[in-house]
Simulated assay, not measured.
Amino acid sequence: MAAIDPDAVFWDIGGVIVNLESIQSGHRSFVESLLEEYQSPLPPAEALETWRSALGEYFRGGEGTEYRTAREGYHVAIDEILSGSADEADWEPLFQRIHDDHAEPNDGAVETIRRLSEGEFHLGVISDVDDEEGERLLKTFGVRQHFDSYTSSEAVGYKKPDRRMFETALEKAGVEAEQAVMIGDRYANDIEGADAVGMTTISYGAEDGPAVDYHVDDLREILTLVGMEE
Rank of each mutant, 00 (worst) to 15 (best):
E154A: 12
V143P: 04
V175C: 12
G119L: 02
A54F: 06
L48F: 13
I98S: 00
E66R: 14
A47L: 06
D7H: 13
N189M: 13
E66Q: 14
T201V: 04
E133R: 09
Y74A: 10
V18K: 06
L48A: 11
E49G: 03
V16Y: 00
A2S: 13
V156A: 03
P44I: 06
G61M: 02
V110W: 05
Q96S: 10
D90W: 11
G119N: 07
G84C: 05
R144S: 12
A196N: 13
E167I: 09
D79P: 01
D162V: 07
W51N: 03
E49S: 12
T140A: 13
R115M: 08
D128N: 13
L223T: 02
H102I: 06
D101F: 04
E132Y: 04
S117T: 05
L34N: 09
G62T: 11
A89I: 15
A45Q: 14
L42Y: 02
V110M: 08
T50I: 11
F147D: 01
K172W: 05
D217C: 01
V226P: 00
I183M: 08
E104S: 12
Q39S: 15
T224E: 15
Q24D: 15
E229N: 10
E229K: 11
P41G: 00
G56K: 11
T168Q: 11
Q24N: 14
G134E: 05
I183P: 06
N189W: 14
P105G: 03
P93M: 11
A86M: 01
V143G: 04
L225I: 15
E176M: 02
Y150S: 09
P105L: 05
G26A: 00
G142E: 02
T168M: 07
A2V: 13
L42R: 09
E154M: 08
D5T: 15
V16W: 00
K172M: 12
R164H: 02
G62C: 07
L223M: 02
E167C: 09
F141G: 00
R186L: 12
T200S: 03
H122G: 10
G157M: 02
L42C: 04
R186T: 14
V156P: 06
N19M: 02
R144I: 03
A2T: 14
R163I: 04
L138S: 02
P44S: 11
M1L: 10
L137Q: 11
V125D: 03
D218Y: 10
S117W: 01
W51G: 04
G134I: 02
G184M: 10
P161V: 08
P44G: 06
S85M: 08
I202R: 03
K160A: 08
A8M: 10
V31G: 01
